[in-house]
């Protein structure tokens, strides 16, 4: 008799291995937090269009975009299992924790990627499906396999992957790539560096141990703080650009400018405090505030679109 519990779980070992994965482990592979951001931004991209999909088709398209993001997350965890294992933040992920075998994660990710792309193409259109396919490719191959381990600009360029969902949502509804969807892309693209660099300021040691050349590891904390400030200054007007281009009302513009100013203010505070203990607190606050920044901007954009012109006058 062979007790499976005593068998080496490592698939690279000779012999066999039996899956220990629970359903929750598979859900964790899809990075639910990232998926929630993708759902929301893609929904906004889909809703602010001049034409709307049938609700059932819209739901199906949104589901495909979400599952596609989950597939990218699973493939990212498959490839990054070695570095995830040495970082405290990621060491409990299903693969380094030994719950899911790398081959399972790979099969899961590839299946979901192919399925989500194919169904999105059939339900919505092939432009949206192509954008989803490119996003998954960009996140997994360009960012995860290449940029992440080779350049401190990893999250700057790689941030494009996270910026595509609203554009995919827009494309699913309209079959085109409009200027407004490009603006939504740019907001997330320029939001990503200050968001992740704020995190990396207090996780720099872990990144260094894992051999990930994050900006604080390569260029130092002072330069990272300076870059956070620069990107925050660039982000503020881009955040207000849907209003500046006439796609949304004054309330959105005002809120975006105030939120942008708050981000710049926090970035200045991070620069001013430097490596002091309060500076670390400020970086953590910046990380949290930046999530709120993006959520508020997209929520107000959605509200602005729902209320339309009469609502804008009332507001």
């Amino acid at each position: 008799m062979t007790d499976i519990a005593a068998v080496d779980h490592d698939p690279k070992s000779v012999g066999f291995a039996v899956s220990e994965a629970s359903v929750g482990d598979y859900l964790a592979l899809m990075k639910p937090r990232v998926m929630s951001l993708v759902v929301f931004t893609a929904l906004v991209g889909m809703m602010v269009t001049p034409v709307h999909l049938h609700p059932v088709l819209g739901f199906a398209a949104l589901l495909c975009i979400t599952v596609g993001a989950g597939a990218a997350g699973a493939l990212n965890m498959w490839y990054d299992a070695d570095v995830d294992a040495v970082m405290r933040r990621t060491s409990r992920r299903p693969i380094p924790a030994g719950q899911v075998m790398p081959s399972e994660a790979l099969a899961f990710g590839v299946t979901l990627a192919i399925g989500s792309i194919a169904v999105l193409g059939l339900v919505a259109n092939w432009l949206a499906a192509s954008l989803l396919a490119f996003t998954i490719f960009f996140y997994v191959v360009v960012y995860t396999m290449r940029l992440k381990r080779t350049t401190p600009q990893n999250i700057v360029i790689g941030g494009a992957a996270g910026a595509f969902p609203p554009m995919i949502g827009w494309a699913a509804a309209t079959g085109t790539i409009g200027v407004e969807s490009v603006l939504l892309f740019l907001i997330i693209f320029f939001w990503t560096p200050p968001h992740f660099w704020a995190l990396s300021l207090w996780r720099a040691e872990e990144y260094a141990r894992a051999g990930i050349p994050m900006l604080p590891v390569v260029a130092g904390h002072a330069e990272t703080r300076r870059q956070i400030l620069l990107y925050s200054i660039v982000l503020a007007p881009i955040g207000a650009s849907p209003w500046l281009f006439g796609y949304s009302g004054l309330p959105y513009g005002a809120i975006a400018l105030v939120a942008g100013a708050a981000m710049i203010g926090l970035a200045f505070r991070i620069v001013a405090l430097g490596d002091q203990k309060e500076g670390v607190h400020a970086a953590k606050r910046m990380f949290g505030v930046s999530i709120m920044y993006l959520f508020v901007l997209f929520a107000v954009l959605l509200l602005d679109d729902w209320l339309g012109a009469p609502g804008r006058i009332l507001l």
């Binding site: 008799m1 062979t2 007790d3 499976i4 519990a5 066999f16 039996v18 899956s19 220990e20 994965a21 629970s22 359903v23 598979y26």
Partner: peptide, 22 residues
């Protein structure tokens, strides 16, 4: 009288069933 081959633990059976249901 000893069973040959792979014998799953109860936990592994439970998880396999949960995956199948999902």
């Amino acid at each position: 009288g000893i069973e040959n081959g792979i014998v799953l633990t109860d936990e592994q059976k439970r998880r396999r069933r949960a995956r199948s249901v999902a």
